[in-house]
């Protein structure tokens, strides 16, 4: 099975903030890491390779420093890393990002399966996985929590939803987005990290994947982020309830019920 795992480099979240003066996102100084959800996709790719043989390729679109995300994937055991990097990709929204990634998957060629994380913790949209599937014209299953079985031409997987889960059979090639329940990602060993640091990471430009200029970057992005604000401050004051348990319960349950929260 030839598997491409899409990984995004993201800022380590808890440190992201808005500069109160410029109202812009402060992310320069912040450490970057592989999108945590993508570690599960990498791990699942490795496990599928262990079960069924084949190759796992990690693919990331981003600036040159996104190579560090690929090196992390390499240290976990993927066979090779591909960095899709070109100034022309700058400003891509999920439409353009998924288009570029789909082109890269086609460039890799003969791919059976694309694995994505559930969502990226910065953009938080969860749109890129289904977007890749649409651009490739492949079937998709999202929020996958278990891969039961694989045949030559299809996979049987469990996908989650708010009410429970479905067991579905999906033809290959396909795109899956995976959730945390699917596995526990391995922690790389020192030896493998050292090797990964020296490994070659191939860089692909927009031309190399034959991405049409009108479909990538800002020009290829239908959406525009027009404003970024800090979240509104926590509203209101603390209401202290120190009556009898019954009184307190009545008051609290009433408040929650007014907002349909119980």
């Amino acid at each position: 099975m030839k598997i491409v795992v899409c990984i995004k480099q993201v800022p380590a979240t808890h440190e992201v903030s808005i500069d109160p003066e410029t109202k812009r996102l402060k992310r320069e100084s912040v450490e970057a890491e592989v999108n945590p959800f993508d570690l599960y996709a990498i791990e699942e790719g490795l496990r599928l390779r262990e079960r069924f043989g084949g190759e796992v390729v990690a693919l990331s679109m981003g600036p040159p420093q996104a190579q560090w995300a690929l090196r992390e994937a390499l240290s976990m055991g993927v066979d090779r890393g591909l960095l899709l990097s070109d100034k022309a990709f700058a400003g891509s929204d999920t439409w353009a990002t998924s288009y570029a990634l789909a082109r890269a998957v086609e460039t890799v060629g003969a791919v059976d399966l694309v694995l994505c994380g559930k969502q990226a913790i910065d953009g938080d949209t969860a749109q890129v996985g289904p977007g890749i599937a649409a651009h490739l014209g492949w079937p998709q299953a999202t929020y996958v929590s278990h891969v039961q079985d694989a045949g030559a031409k299809h996979l049987t997987v469990t996908r989650m939803n708010e009410d429970g889960h479905d067991v579905v059979q999906i033809d290959l090639p396909a795109v899956l987005t995976v959730v945390k329940d699917i596995n526990t990602p391995r922690v790389p060993k020192l030896r493998d990290c050292r090797t990964a640091l020296r490994a070659e990471v191939a860089v692909l430009t927009a031309d190399a994947v034959r991405a049409e200029p009108a479909r990538i970057g800002l020009d290829g992005s239908p959406t525009r982020v027009v404003k970024i604000n800090p979240p509104p401050p926590r509203g209101g004051k603390t209401l202290v309830l120190d009556g009898s348990p019954a009184e307190t319960a009545r008051r609290l349950v009433h408040e929650l019920r007014m907002k349909s929260l119980v």
């Binding site: 450490e31 922690v187 790389p188 990290c193």
Partner: peptide, 8 residues
């Protein structure tokens, strides 16, 4: 650290 970019 695992994520060190200057591991050596």
């Amino acid at each position: 650290k695992q994520k060190s970019q200057k591991l050596e």
